[in-house]
């Protein structure tokens, strides 16, 4: 099947194709879902190598469950985010203390050096601030504001009520603002 046609197919249908031995379904799902699971893992763990391991492990679990996947029963991304959340929780419990300085190097050579440095500094500051949030708050903030998920989906992933998600994200955002307020000017967010 041509690439552009498969690109419109929902995740769960692609997973069924994968289970039937379709290799291009494997490719589309890899390209579509790996960045999302890696992003969530990286924002939770703050370490690129660890986030890659978690992303790979989560994707292996997806491949393995494919033959048993029942179309329309659950959203593939919700299931995956939950797997990543659990894997991150396990890792965080094993190794308390997240490497705050292990931030990915930006790979975009087209941007001017000053801009790259500022963006790098901003991402380091955000990652350091996120790492200071309690685990569930961080989970909710990352899923809501970086992954762009809705509160009901986050509630399903984290296993709490929608009201609890609203409260967690609001508190998380307030805490981040407080942590980052002192660095606002240094990060280039000023009034002029």
């Amino acid at each position: 099947m041509p690439y552009d046609q498969q690109d419109d197919i929902p995740d769960d249908a692609l997973l069924v194709l994968f289970a039937n031995g379709d290799q291009s379904a494997a490719r589309i799902l890899t390209l579509r879902l790996t960045p999302r699971v890696f992003s969530q893992a990286f924002r939770m763990l703050g370490d690129k190598a660890e986030a890659e391991d978690v992303a790979q492990e989560a994707m292996i679990r997806l491949w393995k469950i494919a033959p048993e996947w029942r179309q329309g029963e659950a959203k593939v991304t919700t299931w995956l985010y939950r797997v990543v959340a659990n894997l991150c929780t396990d890792r965080l419990r094993k190794t308390r203390g997240v490497a705050l300085d292990a931030i990915a190097e930006p790979e975009d050579g087209a941007k001017p050096a000053a801009e790259v440095m500022q963006e790098d500094a901003r991402m380091s500051a955000l990652q350091a601030a996120l790492a200071q949030l309690p685990e569930r708050q961080r989970q909710a903030v990352v899923l809501r504001h970086i992954e762009g998920l809705g509160n009901p989906e986050i509630a399903e992933i984290v296993g709490i009520s929608v009201e609890a998600v609203e409260s967690l994200t609001a508190r998380g955002k307030r805490a981040l603002t407080k942590i980052l307020a002192d660095q606002r000017e240094a990060l280039g967010y000023s009034d002029g």
Partner: peptide, 15 residues
């Protein structure tokens, strides 16, 4: 915060 979140979301796609 909005800008940091947006940058983080965009950067991950590239990272």
């Amino acid at each position: 915060l909005d800008d940091l979140f947006a940058t983080a979301a965009r950067e991950m796609e590239e990272a």
